[in-house]
């Protein structure tokens, strides 16, 4: 069995082979692989016995269920009103400079993807961003530089709880 088959099977074992399990299973694949490949979606469809078109239709609806390849660290900067007012553009500029990519791109080494996203629910601490599941708030260009540097050095991101702030 391929690695993907194994992954989907173990997720289906865990969440059950019901229609209701679709999102949790897709989320599980994204957590491990960062995105849903065609292979993954076909495999999920087979495991819970629904059409692959339905799996793709559902996955493509949700902005966190990526259907194209993503970097190891997915950086999502909040672009909604309060974060915009508090300098989100400067944060993006700094990220583009540090990562040497433009918004929407993935770095050459496959480590970082830079995206914008809608409201993260951190409006009182804007500008804010999520890196994978961890929120970073009250951002300044300096702070962004430190965060990216430490991620570059430290391969293992600990998804441990909240960040300090």
């Amino acid at each position: 069995m391929t690695e993907m088959k194994n992954l989907v099977k173990s997720l289906a074992d865990n969440y059950g082979r019901y229609h209701e399990s679709l999102l949790p299973i897709l989320q599980g694949v994204v957590e491990k692989k960062r995105f849903l490949s065609e292979e993954a979606m076909v495999e999920v469809a087979r495991e819970i016995d629904i059409s692959a078109a339905h799996v793709f239709g559902t996955a493509s609806f949700y902005s966190f269920l990526n259907t194209s390849p993503m970097g190891e660290y997915v950086v999502r900067v909040c672009k909604t009103i309060t974060c915009m007012m508090h300098g989100k553009n400067l944060i993006i500029q700094e990220l583009e400079k540090q990562l040497k990519i433009k918004l929407g791109e993935t770095s050459h080494d496959g480590k970082f993807t830079l995206l914008e996203t809608n409201c993260l629910g951190q409006c009182h601490k804007g500008p804010a961003m999520l890196i994978n599941d961890t929120p970073y708030t009250n951002l300044t260009p300096d702070k962004v530089r430190d965060i990216i540097q430490s991620l570059k050095q430290n391969d293992l991101v600990s998804n441990a709880a909240t960040q300090v702030n």
């Binding site: 229609h19 209701e20 999102l23």
Partner: peptide, 22 residues
């Protein structure tokens, strides 16, 4: 867990989401 869709806060959209649909 949701997956980044504002509309799922609408109650019937939320049920659809939980049932494995858009």
């Amino acid at each position: 867990l949701g997956s980044g869709a504002y509309i799922c806060g609408e109650e019937s959209a939320l049920f659809e989401s939980m049932e494995g649909y858009r």
